[in-house]
Protein backbone atom coordinates (compact mmCIF):
# COMPACT_ATOMS: atom_id res chain seq x y z
CA UNK A 1 0.00 0.00 0.00
CA UNK A 2 2.64 2.44 1.10
CA UNK A 3 5.02 1.20 -1.56
CA UNK A 4 2.44 1.71 -4.26
CA UNK A 5 1.87 5.28 -3.13
CA UNK A 6 5.56 6.01 -3.15
CA UNK A 7 5.88 4.60 -6.65
CA UNK A 8 2.96 6.82 -7.59
CA UNK A 9 4.82 9.79 -6.10
CA UNK A 10 7.87 8.78 -8.09
CA UNK A 11 5.83 8.77 -11.29
CA UNK A 12 4.49 12.20 -10.42
CA UNK A 13 8.05 13.31 -9.81
CA UNK A 14 8.86 12.78 -13.47
CA UNK A 15 6.77 15.80 -14.25
CA UNK A 16 7.69 17.57 -11.03
CA UNK A 17 8.42 20.83 -12.74
CA UNK A 18 4.95 20.88 -14.29
CA UNK A 19 2.73 19.41 -11.61
CA UNK A 20 2.09 20.70 -8.12
CA UNK A 21 2.94 18.23 -5.34
CA UNK A 22 1.37 17.87 -1.94
CA UNK A 23 3.59 18.25 1.09
CA UNK A 24 2.72 18.63 4.77
CA UNK A 25 3.83 20.98 7.50
CA UNK A 26 6.00 19.11 10.03
CA UNK A 27 6.59 21.92 12.53
CA UNK A 28 4.36 23.35 15.25
CA UNK A 29 3.96 26.70 13.52
CA UNK A 30 4.61 26.58 9.77
CA UNK A 31 5.51 30.07 8.64
CA UNK A 32 4.78 30.97 5.04
CA UNK A 33 6.88 33.96 3.93
CA UNK A 34 6.53 36.47 1.13
CA UNK A 35 10.07 35.88 -0.12
CA UNK A 36 12.44 32.85 0.07
CA UNK A 37 14.20 34.15 3.19
CA UNK A 38 13.80 34.04 6.96
CA UNK A 39 13.65 37.83 6.68
CA UNK A 40 10.62 37.60 4.38
CA UNK A 41 7.38 38.81 5.88
CA UNK A 42 5.18 36.03 7.30
CA UNK A 43 2.01 36.01 5.17
CA UNK A 44 0.31 33.14 7.01
CA UNK A 45 1.02 30.47 9.61
CA UNK A 46 -0.03 26.86 9.05
CA UNK A 47 -0.54 24.16 11.70
CA UNK A 48 1.32 20.83 11.97
CA UNK A 49 0.04 18.31 9.42
CA UNK A 50 -1.52 20.94 7.12
CA UNK A 51 -1.22 20.07 3.42
CA UNK A 52 0.23 22.54 0.92
CA UNK A 53 0.73 22.38 -2.84
CA UNK A 54 4.29 23.05 -3.93
CA UNK A 55 4.71 25.17 -7.02
CA UNK A 56 8.44 25.82 -7.19
CA UNK A 57 11.77 25.79 -5.37
CA UNK A 58 14.76 28.04 -4.88
CA UNK A 59 17.70 26.60 -2.97
CA UNK A 60 16.32 25.14 0.27
CA UNK A 61 13.09 27.17 -0.07
CA UNK A 62 9.89 25.73 -1.47
CA UNK A 63 7.12 27.83 -3.00
CA UNK A 64 3.77 26.70 -1.61
CA UNK A 65 0.06 27.37 -1.90
CA UNK A 66 -2.22 26.60 1.03
CA UNK A 67 -5.80 25.32 0.71
CA UNK A 68 -7.17 28.82 1.34
CA UNK A 69 -5.19 30.14 -1.63
CA UNK A 70 -2.51 31.91 0.44
CA UNK A 71 0.84 31.51 -1.30
CA UNK A 72 4.44 32.07 -0.32
CA UNK A 73 7.70 30.35 0.61
CA UNK A 74 8.52 27.79 3.29
CA UNK A 75 11.91 26.37 4.23
CA UNK A 76 12.07 22.73 3.07
CA UNK A 77 12.93 21.56 6.61
CA UNK A 78 9.45 22.64 7.73
CA UNK A 79 7.84 20.31 5.17
CA UNK A 80 7.63 16.58 4.57
CA UNK A 81 6.40 14.35 1.76
CA UNK A 82 5.02 11.95 4.37
CA UNK A 83 1.28 11.37 4.24
CA UNK A 84 -0.97 11.90 7.23
CA UNK A 85 -1.69 8.63 9.03
CA UNK A 86 -5.31 7.41 8.87
CA UNK A 87 -7.58 9.19 11.31
CA UNK A 88 -9.42 6.32 12.94
CA UNK A 89 -8.62 2.84 14.21
CA UNK A 90 -9.09 -0.23 12.04
CA UNK A 91 -7.31 -2.60 9.71
CA UNK A 92 -5.80 0.16 7.62
CA UNK A 93 -3.84 1.52 10.54
CA UNK A 94 -2.99 -1.73 12.31
CA UNK A 95 0.65 -1.35 11.31
CA UNK A 96 0.81 2.07 12.90
CA UNK A 97 2.14 5.32 11.53
CA UNK A 98 5.08 4.08 9.51
CA UNK A 99 8.18 5.94 8.43
CA UNK A 100 6.23 7.18 5.41
CA UNK A 101 3.50 8.76 7.49
CA UNK A 102 3.08 11.72 9.75
CA UNK A 103 0.90 10.81 12.74
CA UNK A 104 -2.04 13.03 13.56
CA UNK A 105 -1.22 16.06 15.63
CA UNK A 106 -1.52 15.29 19.32
CA UNK A 107 -1.25 11.51 18.90
CA UNK A 108 1.56 9.48 20.39
CA UNK A 109 4.01 11.02 22.83
CA UNK A 110 2.09 14.19 23.58
CA UNK A 111 1.12 16.64 26.30
CA UNK A 112 -1.00 13.96 28.06
CA UNK A 113 1.94 11.55 28.17
CA UNK A 114 4.20 14.36 29.41
CA UNK A 115 1.66 15.09 32.17
CA UNK A 116 1.77 11.42 33.26
CA UNK A 117 5.56 11.50 33.22
CA UNK A 118 5.56 14.65 35.37
CA UNK A 119 3.12 13.09 37.84
CA UNK A 120 5.47 10.13 38.30
CA UNK A 121 8.61 12.27 38.60
CA UNK A 122 7.96 15.06 41.05
CA UNK A 123 11.74 15.67 41.22
CA UNK A 124 11.86 16.70 37.55
CA UNK A 125 10.95 20.34 37.10
CA UNK A 126 9.72 21.50 33.68
CA UNK A 127 9.56 25.22 34.51
CA UNK A 128 12.92 26.00 32.85
CA UNK A 129 12.02 23.93 29.80
CA UNK A 130 8.85 26.01 29.50
CA UNK A 131 10.92 29.20 29.81
CA UNK A 132 13.50 27.92 27.36
CA UNK A 133 11.05 27.15 24.54
CA UNK A 134 9.89 30.77 24.71
CA UNK A 135 13.42 32.19 24.40
CA UNK A 136 13.77 33.39 20.83
CA UNK A 137 15.60 35.80 18.57
CA UNK A 138 13.56 37.36 15.77
CA UNK A 139 14.84 37.16 12.17
CA UNK A 140 15.48 40.92 12.38
CA UNK A 141 17.57 40.48 15.57
CA UNK A 142 19.49 37.66 13.90
CA UNK A 143 20.23 39.80 10.84
CA UNK A 144 21.39 42.68 13.06
CA UNK A 145 23.56 40.31 15.13
CA UNK A 146 25.17 38.95 11.95
CA UNK A 147 25.76 42.43 10.54
CA UNK A 148 27.28 43.83 13.73
CA UNK A 149 29.52 40.77 14.13
CA UNK A 150 30.79 40.90 10.54
CA UNK A 151 29.13 37.58 9.66
CA UNK A 152 27.71 36.57 6.31
CA UNK A 153 24.30 37.86 5.27
CA UNK A 154 22.07 35.23 6.82
CA UNK A 155 18.45 34.33 6.16
CA UNK A 156 17.85 33.97 2.45
CA UNK A 157 18.23 31.30 -0.22
CA UNK A 158 21.83 30.11 -0.17
Amino acid sequence: MIKRDVVFLCALGLAGSLLAETMRVQVQSGQVRGTPSFLGQVVTTLPYGQAVETTGAQGPWVQVRAADGQAGWMHSSALTVKRLAAQSGGAAVSAGASGDELALAGKGFNADVEAQFKAQHADIDFSWVDKMVKMNASPVQIAAFARAGGLKQIGGAQ
Binding site: L9, G16, V62, L79
Partner: peptide, 24 residues
Protein backbone atom coordinates in the same frame (compact mmCIF):
# COMPACT_ATOMS: atom_id res chain seq x y z
CA UNK B 1 20.29 14.91 2.82
CA UNK B 2 16.59 15.52 3.19
CA UNK B 3 16.51 19.25 3.68
CA UNK B 4 19.00 19.68 0.86
CA UNK B 5 16.96 17.75 -1.60
CA UNK B 6 13.50 18.03 -0.08
CA UNK B 7 10.45 19.40 -1.75
CA UNK B 8 9.51 19.78 -5.33
CA UNK B 9 13.13 19.89 -6.39
CA UNK B 10 13.80 16.36 -5.15
CA UNK B 11 10.62 15.06 -6.75
CA UNK B 12 11.54 16.57 -10.07
CA UNK B 13 14.88 14.74 -9.97
CA UNK B 14 13.27 11.34 -9.50
CA UNK B 15 14.07 8.67 -12.00
CA UNK B 16 11.47 5.96 -12.60
CA UNK B 17 11.33 2.89 -10.42
CA UNK B 18 12.53 4.29 -7.14
CA UNK B 19 10.67 2.64 -4.34
CA UNK B 20 11.55 4.27 -1.07
CA UNK B 21 11.99 7.75 0.23
CA UNK B 22 15.56 6.94 1.28
CA UNK B 23 16.30 5.66 -2.19
CA UNK B 24 15.17 8.77 -3.96
Amino acid sequence: LFPLFGGALALSLLPTGCSTVAEY
